[in-house]
Design a protein around this nucleic acid. Sequence first.
DNA 1: CGGGATCCTTTACGATACTG
DNA 2: CAGTATCGTAAAGGATCCCG
Lengths: 129, 129
Amino acid sequence: MKLGHMSVPGDCDRISPILSHVGNKWAALTVLVLSEGPKRYNQLRREIETVSQRMLTVTLRGLERDGLVRREVFAERMPPQVEYSLTPLGETLVQPLFALCQWSAVNCDAIERNQADYDGPGRHARQAG
Amino acid sequence: MKLGHMSVPGDCDRISPILSHVGNKWAALTVLVLSEGPKRYNQLRREIETVSQRMLTVTLRGLERDGLVRREVFAERMPPQVEYSLTPLGETLVQPLFALCQWSAVNCDAIERNQADYDGPGRHARQAG
DNA sequence: CGGGATCCTTTACGATACTG
DNA sequence: CAGTATCGTAAAGGATCCCG
């Protein structure tokens, strides 16, 4: 796929997995929460609330693997602490991600209305046969 | 979840599903391709290449439901044509989505290197254990 | 051409239990 | 505290066949 006049450099085959990865719900929320500063594991868990322990771990490992998040262990501390923070590369993601987040926040009312509109009137409804 | 100093208005409970929806691989690609102008069904299918017929349909219905994409049927034409285009709301999504797409394009090399780095050295590799 | 319906495989994800 | 390992379900997604 090409983006014509907008000319995204390189393959969309390579960017689309990345896009779907960072556009991923948990990954996006994690990056956004970490943009406030370094956080510990259970701190992240509490702030993202709806995330399960398993998905938080999986997400953090993924982001660490991408080089977007750094993991630091402080075994000397009591209790032992693990701190997560954004890498410089991770920081560069915050702005575009936040912009998309803003867009969602601004337009979620309109979208929910559109959905209700689409579902309701029966033009499209398949359940009422 | 709150975004502290950045203060995303409203619940993140409502924006995160939307974010994961528009951040969705197929939805994002579809919106981006449609930002070039109206396209017909099989035209979209060819341009997005890797998309299956089923997923394209599902994605288009979802975007239509959100009010981001408009579907117009021209039965009079030969052969009968169905044209998809962005709504004004859909247009407003292009810019932030494109920004994220650009980020992916710019950083995909670095990310792939990070991943190889993370997987390779054996520090993290579990398979060779 | 532009899909809908169905089947089947893969993946995502949550719940639970255990560890250092 | 900060995880890992395993299990079972639900959702995503591809392949295929069929229709107007």
